[in-house]
């Protein structure tokens, strides 16, 4: 199982709050997994811990990306190793255009001093923007500054498509999206789906999973996965509600 994102018995906290408790999950490359669960159950913490966020402390456990350990690495090394996090609340970077930001991220992946093919870069950028129905003018806007919720999420997907990660974690990508934006963003993700990428879609609602149909669905509660199943689990969860998780699955 070298070609997988493997998380084993992960325990992590922020301050003195224990959030991830013996969390384990394996995402084989080529598959899309969804994690659903009530608010405050640790879904976003999982995303941030995997990406190496400095606010979280990992007590024990391991996470490997195609066999390469990532816990304890700097966020930029983890990113360059092939993990992409689509943020729930992406930061604004005033004065830095989207085009320059993505270019800087690509150059960071090159060997130092290697030439950068700007022509090919723009050709690809424009093609992906067309796919996401983003106006060309977007390239000269500053990263996330003054963006609507939908624009921010589309910009995250654009970055993902340009950086071509091995694994992508999409944290509540559906939050703040109307139906049209949801459809466009989902098309972007579906467009990337294939044997060379593994995706972890974190969501509170089943709605997103109508557009990005997952191979596996996991229900997370109190810092770990309490139930796993196929795509029909999302529908079942929607019908029964999170009380079902709390009462039956958590106590099981």
């Amino acid at each position: 199982m070298a070609d997988s994102l493997i998380i084993k018995n992960l325990n992590a906290s922020i301050g003195d709050r224990q959030i991830l408790k013996n969390f384990s999950l394996t995402i084989p490359k080529g598959e899309v997994h969804a994690i659903m669960g009530p608010n405050g159950t640790g879904k976003s913490t999982l995303a941030k811990v995997l990406a190496g966020h400095p606010d979280y402390t990992v007590q024990s456990g391991e996470a490997t990306l195609d066999g390469q350990p990532i816990l304890g690495q700097e966020p930029d090394s983890i990113a360059r190793a092939g993990l992409f996090l689509a943020f729930q609340y992406p930061s604004e970077i005033p004065g830095v255009t989207i085009a320059n930001f993505i270019r800087a991220a690509l150059i960071a992946r090159q060997e130092k001093g290697a030439p950068f093919d700007a022509k090919a870069y723009y050709a690809e950028l424009y093609a992906k923007m067309d796919a996401l129905k983003m106006d060309r003018k977007f390239t000269s806007r500053f990263v996330n500054e003054g963006f609507s919720g939908g624009e921010k999420k589309r910009c995250e997907i654009l970055q993902m498509m340009m950086l071509k990660p091995k694994y992508a974690v999409l944290d509540e990508t559906d939050s703040g999206l109307d139906i049209d934006a949801l459809r466009i963003v989902s098309e972007g993700v579906n467009h990337m789906r294939g044997p060379s990428i593994g995706c972890l879609v974190i969501t509170h609602y089943q709605r997103l999973l109508e557009y990005i149909v997952p191979d596996r669905v996991h229900i997370m509660y109190d810092g770990h996965i309490v139930h796993s199943g196929g795509k029909e689990l999302a529908v079942e969860l929607e019908a029964k509600g999170y009380d079902w998780v709390k009462k039956e699955l958590a106590s099981a």
Partner: peptide, 25 residues
Amino acid sequence: AEQIFYMMQRGLSEGEAMSLAVNGF
């Protein structure tokens, strides 16, 4: 710190991230 983390998550080193933020400013 969130801005720096965001940029580092895209693969930029801490120094590159700060430099980009300053150049943006």
